[in-house]
């Protein structure tokens, strides 16, 4: 293990570590592309053009960044509590369903703003309850949250299909393309020519700030961490591990649900079968790449969002499949896990 000796050096700072991770990932993917006869430079240029090189495209990046950030914040709560919230996809879906429940009603008799606010609160509650159900199954039924969450993901997916093809189907014909569009005044308002709602951006930033405060600067955050580190010892500090874990699940699920709510209210304006766009799973990668720390999360979300937005251009410009973005994202996470693993090994913890 001589070749990782230098990582023990204090000079091997956070910056150097990030460089190594990025170098490993991008170098690996670049080499792969090169051997396939594709120019990595072309890919880079296309991705940049499709994401950050125009204001309008950057707006699109932010519409991806918002749900990704919300889901990642949610996962920070559950990871800190020592829980693997694989059920996050289902929680996004449930939040979207909860918001749609309100937004598709035409004769609610409420002002549009109030309906929108209520819909987002409802999406938080919906996602939270769905996550709490997984937590309840764990506490009371001894069902591991990974398997419970995975099962509930399928249930949520079944439910959304049933709603779209059944009770909430479009007038006349049921279609996989989703429900009827909501009334125009129930869309989160966007500047002309943009798909980004400033309100959603504000909500995401507030959610991130709240996560930072709750996890980093409150007793509650410390209790969540204690539960994750050692539930047996946590009980000696008067912490109820089951209850704390359930609360972490509920908050995490709530944030995921909010992401789902924003997907219907400001991106699609209707309920779609693929409303989560896989952002829940992608957020799992974000948090792992951030090594379960809070601070790197917004930047990593932005990077991943750029890749996702930019990759839409790949089939158009280079006749390549857009799943290349997933390859790059995956390579980053594997590299990060590798570097952290090697460092841990170096310290003698493995």
């Amino acid at each position: 293990m001589r070749y990782v000796q230098f990582m023990k050096h204090p000079l091997f700072s956070r910056f150097a570590r990030i460089s190594v991770i990025a170098g490993l990932a991008l170098g690996g993917v670049g080499l792969l592309l090169f051997t396939l006869g594709i120019s990595p430079v072309d890919i880079g240029v296309t991705l940049a053009r499709g994401s950050i090189l125009s204001l309008q495209k950057f707006g699109h990046v932010l519409t991806i960044w918002i749900p990704l950030l919300l889901c990642s914040c949610g996962l920070l709560f559950t990871f800190r509590a020592g829980l693997w919230n694989i059920g996050i996809e289902g929680q996004v879906v449930f939040g979207a369903i909860a918001a749609t429940l309100l937004l598709r009603e035409e004769n609610l008799g409420l002002p549009a703003a109030a309906t929108l606010i209520l819909a987002h609160i409802l999406s938080f509650i919906g996602g939270g309850l769905w996550a709490a159900f997984a937590g309840f199954l764990k506490n009371r039924g001894g069902v591991n949250e990974i398997f419970g969450g995975l099962g509930l993901n399928f249930v949520a997916q079944g439910l959304i299909l049933w709603l779209i093809l059944g009770p909430w189907k479009r007038a006349g014909v049921a279609s996989m393309s989703g429900t009827e569009m909501f009334a125009r005044e129930l869309w989160l308002s966007t500047p002309p020519g943009w798909r980004l709602a400033p309100a959603a951006l504000v909500i995401a930033c507030i959610a991130f700030a709240a996560t930072a405060v709750l996890l980093g600067a409150t007793r509650f955050g410390l209790q969540i961490r204690a539960t994750g580190i050692n539930p047996t010892a946590a009980r000696l500090f008067g912490i109820h591990p089951g209850r704390t874990g359930l609360l972490a699940m509920a908050i995490g699920g709530g944030l995921a649900g909010l992401a789902g709510g924003l997907q219907v209210s400001c991106v699609y304006h209707r309920l779609l079968p693929s409303i989560s766009s896989g952002y829940g799973y992608l957020a799992l990668l974000v948090v792992m790449l951030a090594h379960y720390r809070l601070r790197p999360v917004p930047a990593i979300c932005l990077f991943f969002a750029c890749l996702a937005a930019g990759s839409i251009q790949l089939p158009i410009v280079l006749k390549l499949d857009s799943s290349l973005a997933g390859v790059i994202q995956g390579a980053c996470v594997v590299s990060a896990l590798l570097v952290h693993g090697l460092q841990k090994r170096q310290r003698g913890e493995l």
Binding site: R219, L222, R225, A226, I229, A233, A234, F237
Partner: peptide, 15 residues
């Protein structure tokens, strides 16, 4: 069973 590895003494005392 009694302590929280990874947490500092200060954090133990806060809890």
């Amino acid at each position: 069973e009694g302590l929280l590895p990874g947490m500092t003494l200060r954090e133990h005392h806060i809890l």
